[in-house]
Structures are given as C-alpha cells and as structure tokens.
C-alpha cells in the first residue's frame, strides 16, 4: 500500500466553552486505506468528523484534508469528499434515478456525467431494473448501498461513513463491506465510524477514542497482539475500562 497521506491532523483541539470535545488529536490517514474511527458515544467522534468535513472550525491544531486546509479551504474540501450517515439520506419520495440526479447536480456534475455514473453504479449493484422505483418502496439493504453509491458518485478522494451499518442485518452488512473494499481498491480512502467491533476487524487501521483523546491507533492485528486479546471487542473493552 502506498503511504501517501490524505488526511493529516496535528494537535487538533475543539472546545465548546469549557468542554473539550477533541483533546490534542494527532493522526494521519493514508490514501486508499480503510480507516476505522472507533469510540463510545460522546467520545468526540462526531465532532472530529464534522471538522474533517469542513462543517465546523477547529479551535486549534493543523488539519489538512485531501490536501486542503480545514480553516480556509472548507469549500475545496467539500468538493473532494463524500459523506454517508446512518440515516442514508435518500429522498423517500423520489425514484432511484432522481436521487442520483439530485445529488449529482449539487456536486456540479453535468447531465452526461450523471447518466454515466448512475448507469455504472447501478450496474455494480445489479439494480438497473429498479432505477425508476420510489425509494420508500425498496428494502433497507438496497437503500444503504444506494446511499453509499451516491456518496462516491462524484469520485471523491475520501468518503466519510458515519455508522453506515446501523440497523442492517448481518448478511447485508457483509455485502456492504465488500462494497467498501472494492471502493478502497479503486483508491478512494474510506473513513468509517462504527459501533460493531467485528467491523473494526475489516479495517486496515483503527483508532480508538475515549473522552476526546485517541488512546490507540494501529492495525487490528497489532492491537490484538499488543493487548493480548482475541478480538477487537476485547481490545475495546480493555481500553475503555481503564
């Protein structure tokens, strides 16, 4: 794997008044890797993601995403990232094609690009026949994959997945991770937060956040060795209990 740095975070601090949400975070994410961002609820994951996506300004620290500065170039950052959340964020009353058209449109793709991308992504999901179905009528697993496809429709350098597998059955989750692998192979960096520790095993590297600090960052294999644990689940419990 190449070691080209795509996200660089140095001494990131984010304070809300007295409350420190992100306390001196420093980490790097490499191009094309699947980077797991783990932590209990309230550990500061969402705050960090918001900063990386250009939605929120850091209090201090040096942050660069896809080569752009998180203070001054948030708009360039936004053009180069994709985002998908647990809510899937598709319009329920629009058809699959219309959703593609809308999201392609707001990323500035032209008609031809949107048509080509829609065709290509639907072929990959084998959903060409369903392209005129209204979103509210299709199963949850499809929605999840569609939301992911839409998030990478504009060929971003990085795609942020915020708990993308919430409420989805294990088989669909497995299929979804295959999609993630495929995407990473194409060179798109995947930055993913999750609650499921078995999913953490699929990541190239994992960071674990507790109370606003990153207390561990390594590949799942190394982490398991280091903490003498059989699974990531155990690693997580050992780390968060102390």
């Amino acid at each position: 794997m190449s070691k080209e740095i795509i996200i660089s975070v140095q001494n990131l601090m984010k304070k809300f008044g007295q409350f420190v949400a992100n306390d001196d975070l420093s980490f790097e994410v490499y191009k094309g890797e699947i980077f797991g961002f783990l932590g209990a609820n309230g550990a500061g994951k969402t705050t960090a993601i918001k900063i990386l996506c250009g939605l929120s300004t850091p209090t201090s620290g040096k942050i660069s995403v896809a080569g752009f500065d998180a203070y001054t170039q948030t708009n360039k950052i936004k053009h180069n990232i994709g985002y998908m959340s647990q809510k899937f964020s598709l319009y329920e009353d629009l058809t699959i094609t219309e959703n593609f058209r809308f999201y392609g449109g707001i990323y500035g793709l032209n008609k031809k690009q949107i048509q080509d991308k829609t065709k290509q992504l639907l072929e990959r999901l084998k959903l060409e026949d369903a392209k005129d179905k209204i979103i509210s009528s299709i199963p949850l697993g499809w929605k999840q994959k569609l939301a992911f496809s839409i998030a990478i429709m504009h060929d971003p350098k990085i795609v942020f997945l915020d708990e993308p597998t919430g409420g989805v059955d294990p088989i669909t989750r497995r299929q979804f991770w295959e999609l993630i692998y495929e995407t990473a192979h194409q060179g798109i960096t995947v930055f993913v937060t999750t609650h499921y520790m078995d999913e953490a095993e699929y990541c190239d590297r994992v960071s674990i956040m507790v109370d606003g600090k990153i207390i561990a960052l390594n590949s799942p294999k190394n982490l398991k060795n280091e903490y003498q644990a059989k699974s990531m689940d155990e690693v997580f419990l050992k780390l968060t209990r102390n």
């Binding site: 985002y83 899937f88 964020s89 942020f160």
Partner: peptide, 13 residues
Amino acid sequence: EMGTMEVMLVSPL
C-alpha cells in the same frame, strides 16, 4: 429529520 440536510451541508452547497 431524514438526514438529507446533513448530506447537503457536507456538499459544496
């Protein structure tokens, strides 16, 4: 409510 606002805010809009 649908979470689509979030996606729009992350987009260049």
